[in-house]
Write a protein that binds this DNA or RNA. Structure first.
Lengths: 210, 210, 210, 210
DNA sequence: AATGAATGAGTATTCATTCAT
DNA sequence: GATGAATGAATACTCATTCAT
């Protein structure tokens, strides 16, 4: 019985994963309003199964967002741990996350998705953890003098989110253009830059407002 | 007769303008899929009136996009003519266009809107004219040495589009954050910046592909 | 003043006639549910003018039907007066009315039109007059021995209505096919025919039921 | 699995059949423009179900027409096989088809329906098969000398269509009138008839034009 | 549990009719 | 009077969600 239950769970888990993966992809391609049936089809299951796992669209959006944030967080931690300098870590996070944009995009682009995620504690937790990690990297970069002192973690997060929003696929010729844009932005973050920024540094905390 | 005809037209024109203005606003707030009725309500007319002017949603989207591009174009021209340096013109375009983001956003954010606009020659013409103007400004800025030589007009357009995409309202506290982001990007464009960019400069022509 | 009033009336009358003529044509082509605006366009007037003359679609349908019946009636009378035999008159009525099919069709084809006309006394009067004329012709034909005795005026009316319903235009190659069909039916009406018909002769009165 | 699949299909099929039957009836009563909801109600299903089976109104019209033609064809084949003479077969086809008028009517009466069916290969096939069957019967009747030699299958088809167009219900007192009309037409087709017909015989092929 | 059929509420669009010009 | 713009009710069609199999 335990065995069968376990096997069942494995099945169910696989199903769930397929659905989330399919949803991530389909959301990225067609926005958070795609017909549920399309997602189900992409996942290779019936709508009924989808609804068994996720009571409604919002739950599915939450699941996708949670997973996306978790992946980016893991990536950031890995980068911080493995790269020689904090600046290299920042570069790697932007670069890698390019491959994750589709994931994060959801949380950034759609007004509706934002509304939905606003109330989700688990997403909030991922987000906070991610922001904390980013904060550490940014501060380290400033300590090592590789990025200007007048930016806060929030500033960096916003800059990153701008680039991550755009979804050229990995094989899209437009990808290069966005890598260049990211590079220009990173150059803008370098300490050497001259013009003073308006207002005061935006912190991670500041972003919680929006 | 002419008088009455003219007066009638004036009325109709006012109505039409209200509709486009309302649509621009509502699209910005709720995306290109908002109920037509909501747009009509915002414009203070009945749905029937909206449909008399614009045979379907696509026509309305096109109208909003045309007008938006035209406004940004006018702005860019003005900036180029009035600002002392090309770099100042760039700064002004980004700054001003912030007030137009809602307009441009439509053309940038939604996959659906993109598809619709792809086939519209008038939008294409506005876009080309805008790109030409931007090209002139960028080249002048490079000639005056205020921005790095290894970026093309397409690079600048992409960077601008990244910032313009985000739609914090003028009274939104988040606005400052985006102005800072824009400033960082402009700093990244300054000649003084160090790291070489990957690939080759993206031209305005390159963007026509996408 | 009288002059101006008269001129006005003439104008209005012309307008009215144009509208009825256009409606007849458009009804024939597209059924009694065509958009009122299409009729107005065909008549070369604005919808407002159309509605000034005819308070609603039903009134317009009635007007078209009245005129159509009146024309067929006039035609039948002329045929009866001018043709040498009653049978020739029948032939002529069917033939001529071919040109009028569009007119009569309205009253025959659409369930909705039937309903509307059912309550119109003027249409009823035209119809009765037409039936009386046909009755005279049929009886004369039977008296002269040119059509079988076991048919009533109602039978003939139904047969005629069957052929008149079909609307091939005068320049339609299908017109010949329908003239042949009419000829076969007339042959069927000739006395020489053999098989006894079921039931009893249908009179003009019988048709008032439907 | 097969069992459950089959049972499910059976349910769906029953539903589909109910929808087509209801549509046939409702189309006959109120024309091809009746609200889809009315059809759904008549079929005892929700609109959604109707649209699941038939993507739009045209698909439903096609389905009704296909089935109607198929039924008339089956009837004609049966008549040809069972009746002692070809003429009897003709009589039976007209008589039986009276019960099917509602079916055929759709394809004959509405301009819109015609347009829709014009492009449907399956309807065209049914129509061709029906015409072939009728052709055989007509030629046999001419061979046995029971109908005049100067008519083609197309002539007969048109005559039949004239009678079949009219839709008195089986319990309608007007039914007798139409049976009489059909009888007169059949008499007109008998060889004994006298007057020469205009033009040349209309064949089945000729009708394909329209 | 999985499936996909059924439901009906939500939205786009059309068109009869009214009314300001 | 004539015009055509405005209105909103009617109807087609879609899709989230539920439920029988």
């Amino acid at each position: 019985m335990t065995a069968s239950e376990t096997r069942l769970r494995a099945d169910a888990q696989r199903n769930r994963d397929q659905i989330v993966a399919a949803a991530r992809q389909v959301f990225a391609e067609a926005g958070p309003d795609v017909p549920m049936e399309e997602i189900a089809r992409a996942a290779g299951v019936g709508v009924g199964t989808l609804y068994r796992r996720f009571p409604d669209r919002e739950a599915l959006i939450r699941a996708v967002a949670r997973e996306s944030f978790a992946q980016v967080l893991a990536d950031a931690r890995e980068a911080a741990a493995e790269e020689p300098t904090a600046f290299d870590a920042l570069v790697r996070v932007v670069g890698r996350s390019h491959q994750l944009q589709a994931s994060v995009q959801l949380a950034l682009v759609s007004e509706r998705a934002k509304e939905i995620l606003k109330g989700d504690p688990e997403t909030a937790a991922s987000r906070d953890a991610l922001m904390a990690e980013l904060d550490a990297i940014v501060k380290a970069a400033q300590a090592e003098g590789s990025i200007r002192a007048d930016v806060g973690t929030g500033d960096v997060a916003i800059l990153f989110s701008l680039v991550l929003r755009q979804p050229p696929a990995v094989d899209d010729p437009a990808l290069l253009a966005f890598e260049r844009a990211a590079a220009v932005m990173l150059d803008g973050l370098r300490s050497s830059s001259g013009s003073p920024l308006p207002g005061r540094p935006i912190t991670g905390e500041d972003l919680r407002i929006s």
